[in-house]
C-alpha cells in the first residue's frame, strides 16, 4: 500500500502543479513593475491603475456584464422549461428533434454555431449588437442549463408534487411551492454556468457582435494576439479572483444547504 500511495502523492502533486502553476505565474507577474512581462523588476500595482484608466476595457467589461446577465437569466428560464418538458413532458410530436436540439449545441464547435447565427442575423436583417450576442448566448447556454436541471428533475420524488396537487394546489402553485424550491440548487448552478459561459465566450461573440458592442474576451483576444502584456495580466488576475471567490462561496453555500437538508430530513424521520 505504501508504494501505491507514494505514486499517488507524486501524481496528485504534479497534476495540480500543472493545473495551477501557469495561473500563479500570471498572477505574480501582474504585480511586476516592468513593462517586460518576463523580467521581475519589483512589486507594483501600476498595471491595475492603468487598467482602471483604460476606457476601452471598461466599456467592454460593461457590455460583457450586460450580455451575461440578460442571456443567463433568459437561458435559465428557457432551459428549466426545456428540462421540464424533457423529463415530464411525456410524448409529443417531434420529441426526438427537441432532445436532439438540446444536446447538439453542447458538442457543436463554436465556430459553426457562431457562423450559423451570424448568417441568420444577416438573413433577417437584424443589426449586430448587444441584442444579437444575447440571443446567441441564450441559445447555447440554455442547453447547458437544461442538462443541469434535468439531471436534478430525474431524481426528484414525484409523489411530493402529486401530494400538493391532491391537497388543492393548482399545477402552477405546486410548481412554485414544491418543485422549484427542491430543484433550486440545480437552477442556480445552471444560471451560474450560463453566466460564466457567456463571460468567457470569444468565438460566438466575435461572429455576432457589431462594432459598437465589443465584449471583454474580444478585446482581450485582439490585445493578446500582439503578445503578452502586463495590463492583460492584471485584468486576468481580477477575473481569476472573482471566479475563485464565486466558486468557493457557491460550494460553501451548497454544502451548508445539504447539511441543513439532511438535518431536516432526520428530524422529520424522528417526528
Amino acid at each position: 500500500m505504501n508504494r501505491l500511495s507514494w505514486f499517488n502523492t507524486v501524481s496528485l502533486t504534479l497534476g495540480f502543479a500543472f493545473l495551477y502553476i501557469p495561473m500563479i505565474i500570471l498572477i505574480v507577474f501582474s504585480f511586476n513593475e516592468s513593462k517586460l512581462v518576463t523580467v521581475w523588476a519589483g512589486f507594483s500595482t501600476r498595471w491595475y491603475g492603468e487598467l482602471m484608466q483604460n476606457q476601452a476595457f471598461l466599456s467592454a467589461a460593461w457590455v460583457t456584464l450586460k450580455v451575461a446577465v440578460f442571456s443567463s437569466t433568459i437561458a435559465t428560464v428557457l432551459g428549466t422549461m426545456a428540462a421540464y418538458v424533457l423529463v415530464r413532458g411525456g410524448r409529443f410530436m417531434g420529441r426526438t428533434l427537441f432532445s436532439g436540439m438540446i444536446y447538439a449545441p453542447l458538442v457543436m464547435p463554436e465556430v459553426i454555431t457562431g457562423l450559423s447565427l451570424l448568417l441568420l442575423f444577416i438573413g433577417i436583417g437584424l443589426d449586430r449588437g448587444v441584442l444579437t450576442i444575447v440571443l446567441a448566448h441564450t441559445t447555447f447556454s440554455m442547453c447547458y442549463v437544461s442538462v443541469v436541471v434535468s439531471s436534478r428533475l430525474v431524481t426528484f420524488d414525484r409523489s411530493l408534487e402529486e401530494a400538493a396537487l391532491d391537497l388543492g394546489c393548482s399545477p402552477i402553485q405546486a410548481f412554485g411551492l414544491v418543485t422549484l424550491p427542491i430543484i433550486a440548487p440545480a437552477v442556480i448552478s445552471g444560471w451560474l454556468l450560463a453566466f460564466t459561459l457567456s463571460l468567457d465566450d470569444l468565438v460566438i461573440a466575435s461572429f455576432t457582435s457589431g462594432p459598437s458592442s465589443t465584449t471583454l474576451p474580444i478585446k482581450i483576444f485582439s490585445a493578446v494576439r500582439l503578445g503578452v502584456s502586463p495590463e492583460i495580466n492584471a485584468l486576468s488576475t481580477i477575473m481569476i479572483g472573482i471566479v475563485t471567490v464565486g466558486v468557493i462561496t457557491a460550494s460553501l453555500v451548497t454544502k451548508r444547504a445539504s447539511i441543513r437538508q439532511r438535518r431536516e430530513e432526520q428530524e422529520a424521520a424522528r417526528a
Binding site: Y20, M23, P217, S236, I240, V243, I248
Partner: peptide, 23 residues
C-alpha cells in the same frame, strides 16, 4: 473543487497564461 476551479476560469486566460511561459 481544485479540478473544477480552472474549468470556471476563463478559457482565454488559461490559454494566454501559456504564452508568457512558452515564449
Amino acid at each position: 473543487m481544485l479540478v473544477i476551479l480552472p474549468f470556471w476560469t476563463s478559457f482565454l486566460i488559461r490559454v494566454y497564461a501559456w504564452m508568457g511561459i512558452l515564449s
